[in-house]
Every structure is written in C-alpha cells, then in structure tokens.
Design a protein around this nucleic acid. Structure first.
Lengths: 276, 276
DNA sequence: GCCGATCCATTCACACAGGTTATCGATCGC
DNA sequence: GCGATCGATAACCTGTGTGAATGGATCGGC
C-alpha cells in the first residue's frame, strides 16, 4: 500500500516502549487521540494488527514485536543519514576518528602519521567517545577504533589491527602473580571485573588499577591497556580465552577516499608494529 | 531540527537519480513545483545544500552524494520493515528460506529434515530467488542459502556450511583435463566463464555445461555445482583461488526461534556431510 | 543579438493530513 | 454500584503539501 513514514515509526516506537497510549503521547508531545489515530493508520497501511488493546491494557502482537525491532533499525538509519549528510555539508570537511580514551593500543600516532602521508586526504580529527561503535553507527564519526567483539558489528566493515591474548592483572603480591600463565578457572575465587552493561558504570582505567592494587578486584584486559603497568601490579597471560582484537571500523558502504586512506594507513602502522 | 521523512528521502532519491526536477516529478507522479519545494525543505532541515542548480543543469553536491547512499539504505530498510511486519502478521506464519535453484550444495533435504525435528518451529517453505541475499534484505525471506562472497553482507549474520576449493570444468578431451590441479595462469588462454553482472545474462548451468563440452568456454565453479558431471566433462581443483563457501544467512537482528532452529539444523546437516 | 526552448523557482488557491478539545464506553478496584 | 483509568470516537481547526499557471534565467540556432 502506501509508504511507511518516519513519523509513524517513531510514534509506534513510543507506544511499543510505553505500552500505554497516554504516556506515549505525552512523551511525543502530542495528544492521545492523535496518537491512536496514527497507530490505526499504520496498522491499516500494513494490513496487520500491531497492538492488542483493551480498555485496561495494551500488548504487542507478534507483528508488533517484529516492527519494534525494525523501527529501531530504520530510525537509527534515518538519524545516521541526517548526521552524515550534515557533516558532509560542512565547508570545513574533516575525517573524524572515534575512539575510547586509551583505546588505540598505542597505534594512534603511527596511524595518523601514515595517514597524513597519503595524498589528497581530509584533515583527520580524533574524537573521544566511550562507545565509538555507536558514534560510527550514528554518523557522528567516519571511522572508529574499537576492541572486538563489539556488541554489534551491523553495517560496519572492519580491519583487524592487533590480535592479542588477554592478560590477567593482579597485585604483584598475589599468589597467582608468579605464574607464567593462567586459565579462567584459576580466577574462580576472585572478584573479577566485568564489563558493565550500563554506560557510565565503567570505572576509569586508573581507578580499576587502584582497586586491583588494593586487592579488591582482578581484571582481564587486552595487554595494550596494561602498559605501562604500576609497579605493584603484574600482568599474566590467559591461555583459555579468545584473543582480543583491536579493529578499525567504518560504515560498510563508505566510498570516501579519506576513509580508504585511513584503512591503508592503519594497516601499515599495525604491520610495522607486528615485529615487536 | 525536524525529523527526516521517508517521503522526502524518496523525493530526493528520484531527483538524485534523474538530475532533473521535471523528470523526477513525473516519475513520482507529482508536479514539479511540489518537488522543488520538498527538496528545499529537506535542505533546510539538514542545513545543507544537496543540489547545485542552475537554470540549465542540476548537480549533486558532496553532501548530496552522501545522502544518495544513505537514502537508499533507509528506503530499503523501511520497505524491509514493512515486508517483515506484514509477513509476521499473517495468520499462517511460515519460515521462508530463499535459495537459487540448485544452490544448496545438496544439503537442503538434510537441513529440512533436521529442522523439522526441532520442537516448536514454524513450517518451513523454500522459495527460489535468483538473488537470495536480496530477498533476505528486502524482508521477503527469513533465511537464505548463498555462495560467499556475496556482493553485500550488510546486516546479515551467516553460518558457513561448506567450504570448498573451486574446480575448473573442462572438456575431458582438453589437454589440461588430465592435470591433477590447476592455477589461474593455466587458464589464461581460455574463454573463461565470468559471473555476469546483469541478472538474466547468466546462462543456466546446463547451458553452461553444454558450452564447455563444445569447447567454447571453460568455467570455474564450486565443486558442489559440478556433481553429477557429464561424462564428457572433467573437474580439476584450482589451487590458487580462495575457497568458496556455502552460507546460511539471516537478518543480523533476528530473534526468531525458528530461524535459530534452522541455523542449528543447517550446521548439523553440514557437519554430517563433512566426513565424505 | 534576437528568439524559442528548456528548466527551475515562485505564486496562489485548495484539499487534506494531522493536530486539538470534548466526550463516550469499557473495564477494574473498592 | 461508583469513581478512576484508559483507549476510541466525534467535531473542528490549522499548517502544509499539492497542482495549475506564471515568471525568470540560460543556452543553442540562425
């Protein structure tokens, strides 16, 4: 039938979130009847019931559950499209590389040096983002450095720069710190630092190191994050964990010569590092 | 500013295609002034110039080139969202598996048998599509069998079912047919069958085999496509080509238990085949 | 250099999509 | 039963997208 509009998907998304027309309408800044009408029209366009409504409760149908996911993808793609287009329109175009502070495995200077040797590239600028993959997917950056496996590599192309076995970080005084290698089972009794799922809960690296030195925690990290290491801490390689990769990622459909140049530069910088 | 609407992106897309407001408007079934106004509004929303217009010519700006790509992605995501939601709403839900005729490496019966043993799955149905990856991305199928590397694995998750070195198919009477292996250089003088870029130009497999038997062509194909092989043809392994993979693919964000069951079934069917 | 052709922008009247308020009807807790 | 809650419906209003007509700039042909 007719084309699905962004507005309709955003409305649907709000109702699917709240499961409550009144609250969803408030959140959207419109009145409830307008929202009801819009959802009915969406259902009519699709020829499908999206919500089971009684006068007391609203529930998603199976089709509604599918559309919940799809709408999210579409809305993200739309806002990324807008962000990328706006950036491309700036009269002072730059290549934006997103990374987590310290998340470059020490390669950043070499990458940028190699990049700037490439002919005809845009000036590069590094932006620091806790979730660099997200910045990339939202169109706020042209490329990103990140550690694999990220939660979601949808729509991203990647180049592996470094592959490293993870190391356990322990107080030097810890009994296990003298071992030449460890397995996860060895750390069973420890308070192991886990990646928090909530952003913002992540303590800074130096805080984490401090906690470890105090004997409160141990952590398993890529080796590159552990150099330099405090005197009172020791890093021991883990043998039974998958290796951790530092990746350069960029939008899968990128056609930017500057991004291509950055990929070449990063690959050559990583190759130069490989020997040691 | 305001939200980008699907309609605006479709309008933009038409103008970017035609580089001509009048023709684009005709194609869209609207009048030209409406189109001009819509594009202007889109430019205002984005704060960016998308077209350089003179009274004689229309050209894309850099930002316009970026949006051309982005708009395509968004519009495809929108129509896929609609297609998937509509299918989910059917009262007779099925799992649709797309494949090219003959593109299953002989695994299909085993996959379906294993799938139907899984508890609580939807009835499976196979649909034949020349471009099964496209059917998947457009939301017309839940999963697809295809040979890697497909042109575009964006947004798809995959499981490798078979990995095979490609074989050259030659007339048995051909001098090279007696060799135990070949490299691409050996085929330099031959009229090598290439994957046509235009769909529809691809001759059927049996036609191709006929051409080879006549000595008009030779072909390099995955081994699975060459069994059974006519008596007057011979298959010789290629040693310097990347191996060809048969993949099962599905939308990266799928949460369908039936798709998960299909992936398990396909993996086990492939594992059972592995020995021979 | 003038003229006609081409092509995008502007103007204006109009219809309609999408918004609002007011009201209704169903359902639940008490 | 009664009031509270919540979605659907009705009636109305407004902004915006639409289309016919028109304007204005540029180019090619002669």
């Amino acid at each position: 039938m007719d084309r699905l509009e962004t507005r309709e998907l955003a409305y649907f998304s709000a109702v699917a979130d709240e499961l409550h027309f009144g609250r969803a309408a408030t959140r959207l800044g419109i009145a409830q009847p307008a929202l009801s009408k819009a959802i009915r029209q969406l259902e009519r366009k699709l020829g499908v019931t999206l919500f089971e409504r009684t006068s007391r409760a609203v529930a998603l149908t199976e089709a509604g559950r599918i559309l919940t996911r799809e709408a999210y993808v579409v809305l993200e793609a739309v806002s990324a499209a807008a962000a990328r287009t706006r950036r491309a329109g700036n009269r002072e175009p730059r290549l934006l590389l997103a990374m987590k502070p310290g998340g470059d495995g020490g390669l950043l200077p070499a990458i940028l040096t190699a990049y700037e040797r490439e002919p005809g590239v845009l000036p590069a600028e590094v932006i620091f983002e806790a979730d660099s993959a997200r910045a990339l997917r939202e169109g706020r950056a042209d490329a990103a450095l990140l550690y694999a496996p990220p939660d979601d590599l949808d729509q991203l192309d990647t180049e592996t720069l470094l592959t490293e076995a993870p190391v356990a970080v322990l107080p030097t005084s810890h009994p296990l710190a003298q071992r030449s290698s460890l397995q996860m089972a060895d750390l069973a009794g420890e308070d192991l630092h886990r990646k928090p799922s909530e952003p913002g809960e992540m303590p800074s690296l130096s805080t984490l190191m401090h906690l470890i030195a105090l004997g409160r925690k141990v952590a398993v990290l890529p080796r590159v994050l552990t150099t330099p290491l405090r005197d009172d801490l020791t890093a021991v390689p883990m043998t039974d964990l998958p290796s951790i990769n530092l990746l350069l990622a960029w939008p899968a459909h990128s056609t930017s010569p500057s991004v291509a140049a950055l990929v070449r530069a990063a690959a050559s910088a990583a190759a130069a590092r490989e020997p040691d």
